[in-house]
Design a protein around this nucleic acid. Structure first.
Lengths: 199, 199
DNA sequence: TAGAGTAAACCGAACGGTCGGTCGGTTCCA
DNA sequence: TGGAACCGACCGACCGTTCGGTTTACTCTA
């Protein structure tokens, strides 16, 4: 809007377009396994040019994970605005939306899910992620308290397992090759609520 | 058995006991994020002493992931020896056993699940893992072909999701703090086959 | 419209530091 | 006394980052 000139013909980098390249390489080789030289090669510019756009390697990680965290938090806000009546509906919505966002923001969520706690930025991301997990677990617990879920599985454990399944989609999903996001989201939701067994 | 002397009083390292320390640090900081100095500090010996026990950093990774792969392959062999009649039983067994092994060999399986493809050893591990995933998917497909599973979810997708849930246990399970392995395995199996919904 | 001026985008070379790994020993115990 | 276990010093390579400078695209002015 401001930095890029009117003609969009020029293939120059903005912090955001560089981020896209960087996150892709991070997901390929792992953050620690990626050198600035790797990033430069993938972007088609030199190592030093990267520093014209961002402060350093860690800023790229921070921007990447925050994009995922913001998207996830946003959808949780919507979910909490839902009427208090349908506690089971809310969990179903949460599962479905979680898959949708994971697919929509696949590279960024993938990066987030793999963060270790080696630097301050990574620990901050882990903290924000834990808060999200806590809010999701809250939905499951409220549904359990309302008697909408089976009683023989601990809600906290169930929440971990369900969103573990959701997050595992990031390990294999490829936009072109695989089903549409909503089809995967539907399959996950069906499996989570009604199981694999034939009825 | 052979390398360690009779008196077990001496806290000297064998390749295996060193591996245990190394894998723990790998899981903490990530393989690429772990320096030999980190390993030395955690083991209480110097960097150079590590090379008395193993050839290098990559051998530690290789030994670690192979321990997990061998355990998983072993249980798959048992599973394939089961009678051809109970196709649904076989899948149920596979899920249950997968959780058991994941917990039994937690650090090694965790390491395996996080392997990227940066070196030859890592790519070899990924190949062996993919073969395991293929065998597991085969069980699910056979059960689906036998009409034991719901027909509205693709068996291949179902397999990915189910074992995605299984593997996600490695992200949070801590032996002391959490339920016994069999209890987690039972919860996963129940969720996978009968779902979260109250009946 | 030629040309001066400007700022973004980019580059090559080099920095101090850390990496995985090697080497020539010393210690310790059977 | 011999070998297993270990150590301190060191190596070349590579790491993330910095620096001084060049190129490029565009605007302003005479």
């Amino acid at each position: 809007m401001s930095t890029e000139t009117a003609a969009s013909r020029r293939p120059t980098y903005t912090p955001d377009s560089l981020l896209e390249v960087a996150v892709s390489v991070f997901n390929d080789r792992g953050y620690d396994g990626t050198s600035m030289e790797d990033l430069a090669r993938a972007a088609g510019i030199t190592k030093s040019s990267i520093y014209h756009h961002v402060k350093g390697k860690e800023e790229l990680l921070e921007r990447g994970v925050n994009r995922a965290l913001d998207a996830l938090n946003g959808s949780l806000d919507e979910m909490e605005a839902l009427p208090d009546a349908g506690e089971l509906d809310r969990v179903e919505q949460a599962v479905f939306r979680a898959v949708q966002i994971l697919v929509e923001e696949l590279p960024y969520v993938t990066l987030l899910l793999r963060v270790r706690g080696n630097t301050e930025a990574e620990r901050a991301a882990q903290d924000r992620r834990r808060e999200i997990d806590r809010r999701l677990a809250g939905f499951v617990e409220r549904a359990a308290a309302a008697g909408a879920l089976r009683a023989d599985v601990d809600p906290h454990l169930a929440s971990r397992l369900v969103f573990g399944m959701v997050n595992s989609v990031a390990e294999w999903y490829r936009p072109q090759r695989d089903l549409a996001a909503d089809d995967v989201a539907a399959a996950v939701t069906q499996l989570v609520f009604d199981g694999l067994r034939r009825r």
